[in-house]
Amino acid sequence: MSIKETIRATFSSVFSEQVEGCQLPIINDDLVLLESGLDSMGFAVLVVTLEETLGFDPFVNSEEAFYPSTYGEFVSFYEKNEPK
Protein backbone atom coordinates (compact mmCIF):
# COMPACT_ATOMS: atom_id res chain seq x y z
CA MET A 1 0.00 0.00 0.00
CA SER A 2 1.20 3.51 -0.72
CA ILE A 3 1.57 6.02 2.10
CA LYS A 4 -1.58 7.74 0.87
CA GLU A 5 -3.61 4.53 1.00
CA THR A 6 -2.23 3.55 4.42
CA ILE A 7 -3.13 6.96 5.85
CA ARG A 8 -6.63 6.74 4.41
CA ALA A 9 -7.24 3.27 5.86
CA THR A 10 -5.74 4.22 9.23
CA PHE A 11 -7.72 7.46 9.37
CA SER A 12 -10.95 5.53 8.80
CA SER A 13 -10.22 2.88 11.42
CA VAL A 14 -8.99 5.39 14.04
CA PHE A 15 -12.03 7.55 13.35
CA SER A 16 -14.50 4.73 13.93
CA GLU A 17 -12.65 3.72 17.10
CA GLN A 18 -12.37 7.26 18.55
CA VAL A 19 -15.59 8.94 17.49
CA GLU A 20 -18.95 7.62 18.54
CA GLY A 21 -22.22 8.36 16.82
CA CYS A 22 -20.59 10.34 14.02
CA GLN A 23 -20.32 9.37 10.39
CA LEU A 24 -16.92 9.22 8.75
CA PRO A 25 -16.55 12.50 6.84
CA ILE A 26 -15.87 12.55 3.11
CA ILE A 27 -12.11 12.32 2.96
CA ASN A 28 -10.58 14.70 0.45
CA ASP A 29 -7.58 17.03 0.43
CA ASP A 30 -9.63 20.01 1.60
CA LEU A 31 -10.99 18.30 4.72
CA VAL A 32 -10.05 20.52 7.66
CA LEU A 33 -8.51 18.17 10.22
CA LEU A 34 -9.90 19.77 13.36
CA GLU A 35 -13.36 19.92 11.79
CA SER A 36 -13.36 16.28 10.74
CA GLY A 37 -14.93 15.13 14.02
CA LEU A 38 -11.67 13.71 15.36
CA ASP A 39 -10.45 15.74 18.38
CA SER A 40 -6.79 16.46 19.08
CA MET A 41 -6.36 13.35 21.25
CA GLY A 42 -7.85 11.39 18.34
CA PHE A 43 -5.18 12.89 16.09
CA ALA A 44 -2.52 11.93 18.59
CA VAL A 45 -3.78 8.33 18.30
CA LEU A 46 -3.75 8.58 14.49
CA VAL A 47 -0.14 9.79 14.42
CA VAL A 48 1.03 7.13 16.89
CA THR A 49 -0.79 4.40 14.94
CA LEU A 50 0.71 5.62 11.65
CA GLU A 51 4.15 5.56 13.22
CA GLU A 52 3.58 1.91 14.12
CA THR A 53 2.32 1.06 10.61
CA LEU A 54 4.63 3.18 8.45
CA GLY A 55 7.64 2.99 10.73
CA PHE A 56 8.27 6.73 10.86
CA ASP A 57 6.97 9.95 12.38
CA PRO A 58 7.33 12.91 10.00
CA PHE A 59 7.03 15.34 12.90
CA VAL A 60 10.32 13.95 14.20
CA ASN A 61 11.98 13.52 10.78
CA SER A 62 11.08 16.91 9.39
CA GLU A 63 13.53 19.78 9.50
CA GLU A 64 10.63 22.17 9.41
CA ALA A 65 8.31 22.58 12.44
CA PHE A 66 4.88 22.25 10.89
CA TYR A 67 1.34 21.42 11.97
CA PRO A 68 -0.91 20.49 9.04
CA SER A 69 -4.31 22.10 8.79
CA THR A 70 -6.00 20.04 6.06
CA TYR A 71 -6.03 16.34 5.21
CA GLY A 72 -4.12 17.10 1.98
CA GLU A 73 -1.35 18.87 3.90
CA PHE A 74 -1.25 15.99 6.38
CA VAL A 75 -0.73 13.36 3.63
CA SER A 76 1.88 15.36 1.74
CA PHE A 77 3.76 16.01 5.00
CA TYR A 78 4.08 12.23 5.40
CA GLU A 79 5.06 11.72 1.76
CA LYS A 80 7.66 14.48 1.91
CA ASN A 81 9.27 13.19 5.06
CA GLU A 82 9.39 9.50 4.32
CA PRO A 83 12.93 8.28 5.12
CA LYS A 84 14.75 7.52 1.90
Binding site: F43, A44, V45, D57
Partner: peptide
Amino acid sequence: GKKNPITGMVLA
Protein backbone atom coordinates in the same frame (compact mmCIF):
# COMPACT_ATOMS: atom_id res chain seq x y z
CA GLY B 1 1.64 8.37 28.67
CA LYS B 2 2.64 7.92 25.04
CA LYS B 3 4.60 10.83 23.62
CA ASN B 4 3.31 12.27 20.37
CA PRO B 5 3.73 15.46 18.36
CA ILE B 6 0.08 16.55 18.52
CA THR B 7 -0.81 16.61 22.23
CA GLY B 8 2.56 16.04 23.89
CA MET B 9 1.17 13.00 25.69
CA VAL B 10 -1.79 10.77 25.05
CA LEU B 11 -3.05 8.30 27.66
CA ALA B 12 -2.37 4.74 26.52
